[in-house]
């Protein structure tokens, strides 16, 4: 199973993401520079966090138009798995692969800390190894994670079971309906503000993020036999 970690100018969680795949799964993983347009060899595309293009204009706005993103859209349309974390989530909304937008945190503060998340759905390829309703501890590190969508879109997200993670207890950014992560209607593109790749060992403070990676592999193996 081949993983790609897309690297934009200003990405800074690319190494974490790469190491998480290496450590949790031992599967082949490549850094893919944002100018590359052929992603055909990859089964999963990971869009890491950071400050792509210095957050110029809006977070994720410039990266969403980078050459690699056309191929990410194509891969998503083919049903391949795409995971965007933090800035990656912002890029996916700007690219139109996920609905809504991420606004400045309501407190105007950059929050870097562990948060409690509730796994709202374990029927996605990214959450198979969790229990529905399970509480997990994953770190956040963002200034603009305040998810917004219009009421009509929110209703659709709720009805289709597209809200995958919610903040439990204190909502760190003012996000609508406590949303921390959502999936697209087809169920193969997930965006989330918290960083599962930073929670893959007890010595990192939590290993609750590990099962996102094992879920992805499990999903793929179920569909493709072994490997």
């Amino acid at each position: 199973m081949n993983f790609a970690v897309i690297v934009f100018p200003g990405s800074n969680c690319d190494v974490d993401m790469y190491k998480a795949v290496e450590d949790c799964l031992g599967q082949p993983v490549d850094y893919v520079w944002y100018t590359q347009t052929d992603l055909s060899k990859y089964d999963v595309i990971l869009i890491p966090g950071g400050f792509s293009y210095g957050d110029y204009l809006r977070t994720g706005a410039m990266a969403s138009l980078a050459p690699a993103m056309e191929s990410v859209k194509k891969a998503a349309a083919e049903g391949k798995l795409v995971l965007g974390v933090c800035n990656g989530f912002q890029i996916l909304t700007e690219a139109g692969l996920l609905p809504g937008a991420l606004r400045r945190n309501q407190s105007l503060k950059f929050h870097c800390k562990y948060v409690d998340l509730k796994v709202e759905s374990n029927s996605t390829p990214f959450t198979l190894d969790y229990q529905e309703g399970e509480m997990i501890k994953i770190p956040i590190a963002h200034g603009e994670g305040n998810y917004y969508c219009d009421p009509e879109t929110l209703k659709k997200l709720q009805e289709n079971n597209q809200i995958v993670f919610r903040y439990e207890g204190l909502n760190p950014n003012g996000s609508i309906d406590e949303i921390a992560g959502i999936i697209n209607e087809q169920g193969n593109v997930l965006g989330m503000m918290p960083h599962p790749e930073r929670a893959v060992h007890e010595w990192l403070g939590s290993e609750d993020g590990k099962r996102m990676f094992t879920s992805i592999l499990k999903y793929w193996r179920e569909r493709n036999g072994a490997a």
Binding site: L57, R58, A61, L65, T93, E94, P99, G100, A101, R103, Y148, C149, D150
Partner: peptide, 8 residues
Amino acid sequence: KLLANTVI
């Protein structure tokens, strides 16, 4: 297409 995000 770029200068504004009409969602917000």
